[in-house]
Design a protein around this nucleic acid. Structure first.
Lengths: 119, 119
DNA sequence: ATAATAGTTAATTTCTAGGTTAAGTATAGT
DNA sequence: ACTATACTTAACCTAGAAATTAACTATTAT
């Protein structure tokens, strides 16, 4: 488990996921590794187009590549999703509460105003 | 709990999070609602600049706004993070396994080749 | 050797992101 | 009424996203 905590470039990760093609690629690669041409045909995209998406996913460290002959097999880097989950868990307390903060804050503000008037 | 399953625009959500300013805004708003000018000063950005970030976060349904007088108070929409978590949980089986799929697949392929030769 | 397959790279186009300055609107305070 | 505050909107700029076509490289099959 070489799980050295490499500070993830979240801009790259979220940017990579901000595209349906790439989310679908992630989904498919989770099921089974595929070649680049297979993904191109599946998504109805040209090879240069899919190549750019692959590069974005690679730069975000979300996929792994292995060249076998002239074919490049891609697979999901499962660590990437785990690290994303870890990031999201930092915010767990944020969505833990059911009350919307703004409600509380609005009440707090109106109460302070009343107090001011009382002083 | 009006948790009607509104199909989230994931492009918008991930796009919104693909920026450090906006992730930091989400972080701060999770702690306490703030005005737009406060965020602008905090991030060292002009009002028009922060205004655009706010719009992107609003379009992604990640924040809530309440106008009080001339001041706009913003708060985190906690549902948004919950829905993101739900999305990520769909992929739970993906990062559940420790083995990298590519390893398996490579082995599978080399085994098939050997078999072919054997035939 | 030659042709087909699998990717890559370059050049071009169109659209959007993220910032700026400058001007406009709405509310609050004096 | 006048001025400051809190945004909002418009016009502009630069850089990068996402696609295309066309040309190039590397590997495999005949």
């Amino acid at each position: 488990m070489t799980d050295i905590h490499i500070p993830q470039d979240l801009d790259a990760v979220f940017g990579a996921l901000a595209n349906k093609h790439r989310r679908d690629i992630i989904y498919v690669l989770g099921l089974q590794p595929c070649s680049i041409s297979f993904l191109a045909e599946m998504r109805g995209l040209s090879l240069p187009a899919i190549h750019k998406h692959i590069k974005i996913l690679e730069d975000a460290d979300m996929i792994i590549r292995r060249k076998m002959g002239r074919t490049n097999y891609l697979a999901l880097n499962r660590h990437a999703l785990r690290r994303l989950q870890n990031w999201l868990m930092q915010y767990h307390t944020y969505w833990g509460s059911d009350e919307e903060t703004l409600e509380n804050y609005a009440q707090f503000l109106s109460r302070s105003k009343t107090k001011k008037k009382e002083q």
